[in-house]
């Protein structure tokens, strides 16, 4: 088990290097630092001197991969690639373009992100699975059919509308919850309620359909026929046989996103003014702060890979056929 985890972590390294290369190419090779300087300073009256000064300030004045001017190993290390990309490996995110410590910002903002994302995730999971099981129990009935129609309709509306409609109804018209903002601790619950409710509802359509299709696929398997031939009631068949087997495809789809919950939701946080990583990212994109975007890309990839490893581990817990 431990050996397997170590192996997986080693295997993640080339992937992270790949992620680094991709971001590096995007940020430094598609456009030269000169281009970025011009874009940042305003395309018009930029003198070469201003560009050079901007680059020097950001540390973008080094060559990409190979520094001829440096000596010894510094030829390879005193380069943009090492300075800007490889150091991400030890979570050294450096300073943002607005000269803030990115790592500190990230630490401070993970909490609020989780406060929204985690409850949304858990409530959605439980609701979706329960509703899906209910529909599978009544499969083919009017209830099932009409629920599927409603699910498609829920899926067909952009999440933005749910947020806007939710804010208008619950905050602006009925004044049940504040329209936006955040506080830590229990007093913050009122800020969290609406985004969580909207998040759960917006995902209901696709979620229920997905879980339902997983369970329906199981219900046609031979072992379910065996279970029925044993004399088990339909509910017992569902909970004792279909659900545990359905857990396997569910794990594949669900566990992988758990670590990414830290990243928060871009839209939700920005609409509700939650000071989490999602809104951090959006602000960075709007301010064209490349350093932050780069850091978030790397962080996102790391969390995704952690998710993949967790998925594999969860398989060993639920599927006796898989051993590590």
């Amino acid at each position: 088990m431990l050996a397997y985890i170590i192996k997986r972590i080693l295997y993640a390294i080339p992937i992270l290097i790949g992620v680094n290369l991709i971001t590096f190419m995007l940020f430094f090779m598609v456009n030269t630092p000169d281009d970025m300087a011009r874009a940042q300073l305003g395309a018009k009256q930029t003198t070469p001197a201003m560009i050079a000064a901007w680059k020097a300030e950001k540390g973008y004045d080094k060559p990409l991969f190979y520094n001829e001017k440096a000596t010894g190993t510094a030829k390879l290390t005193d380069t943009l690639f090492v300075n800007e990309s490889l150091k991400l490996f030890w979570f050294d995110f450096g300073l943002s373009d607005a000269n803030r410590n990115i790592a500190e910002d990230i630490r401070a903002r993970m909490g609020p992100s989780l406060a929204i994302a985690l409850p949304t995730f858990l409530i959605a999971l439980v609701t979706n699975i329960s509703l899906a099981l209910l529909l599978v129990l009544f499969r083919g009935s009017v209830l099932d059919m009409s629920a599927m129609v409603v699910a498609v309709m829920i899926m067909s509306v952009s999440g933005l509308f749910y947020i806007i409609a939710g804010q208008v109804l619950f905050s602006k018209i009925w004044h049940w919850v504040p329209i936006s903002g955040y506080e830590s601790g229990w007093s913050g619950v009122k800020f969290v309620l609406l985004p969580v409710a909207i998040g759960v509802f917006a995902g209901l359509g696709s979620g229920v359909r997905w879980f339902r299709s997983i369970f329906l696929e199981q219900i046609n398997q031979d072992y379910v026929r065996t279970a029925r031939a044993k004399g088990l009631s339909e509910i017992a068949v569902l909970f004792r046989h279909v659900l545990p087997n359905g857990m396997l495809p569910i794990l594949t789809g669900v566990v992988v996103i758990i670590p990414s919950l830290f990243m928060g939701s871009l839209i939700m946080e920005s609409f509700f003014g939650i000071p989490g990583l999602g809104s951090y990212t959006i602000d960075a994109i709007n301010a064209q702060d490349f350093a932050i975007v780069k850091a978030m890309v790397f962080l996102g990839s790391v969390l995704y890979i952690v998710g993949l490893i967790l998925t594999d581990i969860s398989y060993t817990l639920f599927d006796p056929r898989v051993t590590l």
Partner: peptide, 15 residues
């Protein structure tokens, strides 16, 4: 009681 053709798939794999 009943027994089936495919003993492979007739048993619940996770039990």
């Amino acid at each position: 009681a009943m027994i089936f053709q495919e003993p492979m798939s007739a048993l619940n794999p996770v039990m």
